[in-house]
Amino acid sequence: MQIDDTDRRILRHLLADPDLSNADLAARAGVTTATCWRRLDRLRAGGVIRATVAEIDWRRLGYAVEVSLRFNLDKTNPRAFDEFLDAARQVPEVTGIETFLGRVDLRLTVIARDMAHYQEIYRRRILTLPHIADIEALMLVATIKDEGALPV
């Protein structure tokens, strides 16, 4: 899908403040409300804007620990990936699942209230996931940049 400078302006302002009303977004982008609405509709239909979501700060809800777990699976079983992913999706504290090409097969992001809670999740839910050949844990210390946006 092709986008022009007007679309880019709308997207920049939408990314900067997703809670803007259509009228405010249109004013900031320098277009009419009708034009803004039509362009947003076209960007959604074209798959450029996939969703408008709520971003939850897990720490404010009492989840102070975030761990990234990198897995290599025992790939001698042809269903290893599917079975691992099916089981990992059932762990409520897993907030992200990503697959990779290279030395690491998968990464899970796990949140916990504290280290004791994390240890419980790790022992009871993570280590019981099928087909694990190797695990590496990376404890999140700080998030320096977390943007899901491209410079438009």
Rank of each mutant, 00 (worst) to 15 (best):
T76L: 12
T32W: 11
H13G: 05
D5I: 07
R8C: 02
R44T: 12
R125L: 11
E55L: 10
K145D: 08
I144G: 05
E147Q: 12
T33D: 14
I121T: 13
G96T: 06
I3R: 09
D24R: 11
A29S: 15
L129D: 08
S21W: 01
V104Q: 11
T143Y: 02
E98H: 12
M115Y: 00
R28I: 14
N77Y: 02
G46Y: 00
N77W: 00
R39S: 12
K75Q: 10
D86C: 02
L127F: 01
A45P: 07
R107I: 01
L43T: 09
R89V: 01
L20H: 02
F81S: 13
M115V: 09
V91A: 03
L85G: 06
R89T: 01
A88T: 01
A142S: 13
P18H: 01
A142E: 13
L20G: 03
A64G: 07
T33C: 07
A27L: 13
L129E: 09
I121R: 06
V110S: 08
A27F: 08
R9A: 15
T99W: 06
D7P: 06
D74S: 10
G30W: 01
T143K: 15
D134F: 09
P151I: 05
R38E: 13
P151Y: 03
E147L: 13
G46A: 13
Y63T: 12
V141P: 11
D105E: 05
A137M: 09
R60A: 07
E83G: 07
T52V: 15
V65L: 12
P18K: 03
T109C: 04
A27I: 08
F71K: 13
A133E: 15
L85P: 04
V152Q: 06
R60C: 05
L73W: 12
A149Y: 13
A149P: 15
A112P: 00
R107M: 13
T6H: 03
N72L: 09
A112M: 08
D17N: 14
L20Q: 10
D19N: 11
H117D: 15
R39M: 06
I56G: 00
T32D: 11
A88Q: 05
T33V: 04
K75L: 15
R50W: 00
P130N: 10
L69G: 03
N77L: 02
R79V: 10
L138H: 10
L150P: 01
G30R: 11
T109F: 00
I135G: 10
L73V: 05
M1T: 04
L150Q: 13
L85H: 07
T6V: 15
A45Y: 03
R79L: 09
A142N: 14
D17V: 10
M1Q: 04
D7N: 14
R39Q: 10
T95E: 04
Q90P: 01
R9Y: 01
